[in-house]
Amino acid sequence: MRRKELRAYGNSAANRAFFALAYGFVIAAVIVTLYPFLYVLSVSLSSVEAINTRFITAYPIDLSLAGYKMVLGFPDIWQSYYNTIWYTTVGTALNILATCLAAYPLSRRRFFLRRQLNFFIAFTMYFSGGLIPFYIVVTKLGLYNTRWVMVLPLLVSTYNVMICRSAFEGISSEIFESASIDGANDITTLFRIAFPLIKPTLAVLTLYYAVSHWNNFFGALLFLGDQKLQPLQILLRRVLIMASPEVLQRMGGGTAVQALAVSSLQIRYVTIIVSILPIITIYPFLQRYFVKGIMLGAVKG
């Protein structure tokens, strides 16, 4: 009886329409999401003649790596790539250390300042002094045009400290009791026992911190006037948005005539691919951690 009904349920016209709509919507959403990347990739891999004479849509015409040779031969790209990698690795390492240092004491129930310090950090999520006072403080500290300005003002994110705190709170109290019976103090307990136990959470936080450093544009816009220190995002803005003729020309090989010959459009699209390549290649392998990160936040909030 029930089976029969179930079969009728699966085959009714309304249900077929439903599945058609649902699959259609998902397919459309995926195409809209991915097509821009596919188009940029296609232009970046086409020959200059094809770009100038044909209409490129979803696949490269007359495959060519000339654009990549041009862009990768441009020293500024390597300099800003190096800077971005520096900010990302140093920044993320300090983030993880500092996040644990803050979260561990806040997770200890017996800690006498626990409530006060929780409030002390949570308050900053709701209220800040605003851009100008922050700018003045950072400049007065002498951080303007130094590498540290990309790292120190972003030492921890309050939200991530709270996620990390819940992870420490999730460790069974017996583990801590036996550690203290063995005479371990809080510092040893944190690094030897608690830290290894929350590695999965730390992996998620590492990813979030690393992506935010890789994409950090605002900090560099405010505090890094020196081109030698500027990250990829600043160079990208000059190439992609300001379409700085000077930069495009230098990338294109020196003279305006040569620059025209290589298609400035292609230079721009190659630069996009070169800058997002690290994220795009590791992303499919790590995306389940990203998702886990959201769920950690959701359970909290």
């Binding site: 500092a98 240092l101 004491p105 200890r108 006498f112 002094g129 922050f134 403080v137 400290v161 103090n185």
Partner: peptide
Amino acid sequence: RDRYLLLLFLPVFAYYVIFFYLPMPGMLI
């Protein structure tokens, strides 16, 4: 009793003071 916890929290405490609480009175500008 909690001296080690205080010590652990100290660097981040300094961070919040410098980059969040110090700018707050700066609003008087």
